[in-house]
Design a protein around this nucleic acid. Structure first.
Lengths: 348, 348
DNA sequence: CACGACGTAGAAAGCGCTTGCTGCACTGCC
DNA sequence: GGCAGTGCAGCAAGCGCTTTCTACGTCGTG
């Protein structure tokens, strides 16, 4: 039925071992023999049996990339950059590797299941992106899983995700706290004293870090932080829209709104506009991430640019062993404040 | 070192065969035995060896999803929907399947290589999304590959991609021509007579179909179509920005610009604004796809909504054999015209 | 009471590939 | 001229699992 190594060997008049060695190129084979084998491969249209090969060699060429939401450009950009480095077709890496993007939907269980699936496939490497869920049992389970993976020889890299101690996982974290701090510093510097904050889901590290940065800025400046000015939601536009209406209801005198990310900020803008408020004359708005569409908002969004592609590329290279891990296995990647039209001096 | 089936069997005091059967659940095993095996699995923290299992069973639980650009929400949304149906953790499907998203970057070679890689992995199914490249040799190569895959038992589904005859591949195509036709009909109906068109890459089916729809509308209305009013580019914002400047240079009297998709339209809006033109008073703008951010543009984008998620979900179900293929293996999915603020009656 | 049916478990033969080791033909050296 | 050294190729033993076929004990039934 399907063509096997043995068929190729027969056709090329060599042993299966030789064919295997030609294909893997890690053992001396005479040029003439190689040629003959390659021709046979071509003529028979032979395709290696991945599972068989993985079984015999005890390694596979699969590399897993876990993302929270594949439809979100935040993850799309990182995944794209990671994949470009992983190799896959067109990557600069020699061997062809299959980069597989797994969509956890932000669910801890799915995250764990995907890790198991990748462990089962004996993945060569795994890159986890995005914030982690701050739930002790789950964190422990993930840590255990990562340890197992590392033991089995799978390289683990965290990209935009806090380190997980004692797992051997390399971590490239975003400095969410610092970025948020700079952003709110900017708004406070403009004169804002009543700032609404639309946070992401409460249990995510990213949410907490950004909120902490925001509060640190307020505290440093001696600005009040009324608990009513903080609303939790999700990382999407809809959430920003609803949260903004809620904030306006709670305190119509807010002069600025800081959103958990750009999508949320866009939703906030929509809500403000519909409420008859001008941006930034009546209310300033700030986002986070600086996704491509943020510059097209009207007015363009003030935000914190995260080097998603660069970080992803680096994570990819580390996962492939093509770049050394940062000292201590941990590196913090800084964001950059992008001041644009959506933030201005508060009214009155 | 690593725990194997045999270890579990020993611990549970049964034969490896029994353990395998418990795990796969396709053969009667006494409840008490099953229980014992499951306990052993748990105690040893056993994880099935995917490659070995795939080799022995001659099938794997991998499902490939090919996308042109994973950082583009157009593909992200489809991939997300497909994956949700594929199963994977959390999917309603019983067996856990690993949905792998492969990013071709729009390159024909990478597309082919990924297909080979998936063939090598003996993927259970493959879903190809997005427009195809209209290059005869490449099209033939893809067709041959799809045929091979189908022969090997891999289910192939095309989502938002034209059918490939004689391959057994099920195709869910978007009615790009019809959508574009409706869109331009709308603009012509408003009174526009000088419409610029920013097309995607010339060699893609999607580009051609949308352009054909546009021209059909013009022709039907007896509206002139100056060749200078059409510019080819890429499917991204940058391209829309540049193309718009070019169009304005060629003919400043254009009253409307139709873009290949929403991202391009956003770029067009930016260029128009920077040129001091108001939307839609001076120039109307229309996009295509109706991606989530389009409604947040100011003014909101007139566009054609494509049911990306629905189509993806359906493609996923078909790939899993959980839904019958449409009659003839081909179904056309219609778009819906969304008239919003970016289109209006032309000036003077 | 004997015999076939049934339900359950085990033995064993692969699945297609990799790789350590062996074998063989040369080459070059003392 | 004999012998170690070298370069290539083949043999064969798995890798860890699935699955067919066989075996065995227990029932139900004529």
């Amino acid at each position: 039925m399907t063509v096997t190594l043995a068929d190729v060997a027969a056709r090329a008049q060599v042993s299966p071992a030789t064919v295997s060695r030609v294909l893997n190129g890690n053992y001396p084979v005479a040029a003439s023999t190689r040629e003959r084998v390659l021709r046979a491969v071509d003529e028979l249209d032979y395709v290696l049996n991945g599972p068989a090969s993985a079984l015999a060699a005890a390694t596979s060429d699969l590399v897993g990339i876990l993302v929270n939401d594949i439809a979100d450009p935040f993850f799309g950009l990182m995944a794209s950059a990671i994949q470009a480095e992983i190799g896959g077709p067109g990557g600069r890496a020699g061997g062809e590797r299959l980069a597989v993007v797994c969509n956890t939907g932000g669910s801890p269980e799915r995250e764990l299941t995907y890790l198991t699936l990748l462990q089962r496939q004996r993945a060569a490497a795994v890159v986890l992106t995005g914030g982690a869920v701050e739930d002790a049992p789950h964190a422990a389970a993930v840590a255990a899983k990562l340890r197992k993976l590392a033991e089995a020889g799978t390289r683990v890299v965290l990209c935009g995700r806090p380190p997980v101690p004692d797992t051997g996982a390399v971590a490239l974290t975003f400095d969410n706290r610092g970025g948020a701090r700079a952003l709110t510093d900017h708004l406070v510097g403009l004169g804002h004293r009543r700032l609404g904050y639309i946070a992401g889901p409460a249990e995510r590290t990213t949410t907490r870090h950004r909120l902490e940065g925001h509060r640190a800025a307020l505290e440093a400046a001696g600005v009040e932080d009324d608990p009513r000015w903080t609303v939790y939601g999700r990382y999407d536009r809809q959430s920003g829209y609803e949260a903004t209406l809620e904030l306006l209801r709670r305190d119509p005198s807010l002069t600025g709104i800081v959103a958990a990310n750009d999508s949320v900020a866009l939703g906030a803008c929509a809500a403000l506009r519909e409420s008859g408020l001008r941006i930034p004359e009546d209310v300033s708005v700030a986002g986070f991430d600086d996704l491509p569409f943020s510059i097209d908002a009207v007015p363009a969004l003030t935000t914190v640019r995260l080097p998603l592609s660069e970080a992803g590329a680096r994570a990819g290279r580390i996962a492939m062993g093509r770049e050394d891990a940062p000292p201590g296995g941990i590196a913090s990647v800084r964001g950059e404040l992008m001041v644009r039209g959506s933030s201005g001096v508060p009214r009155g």
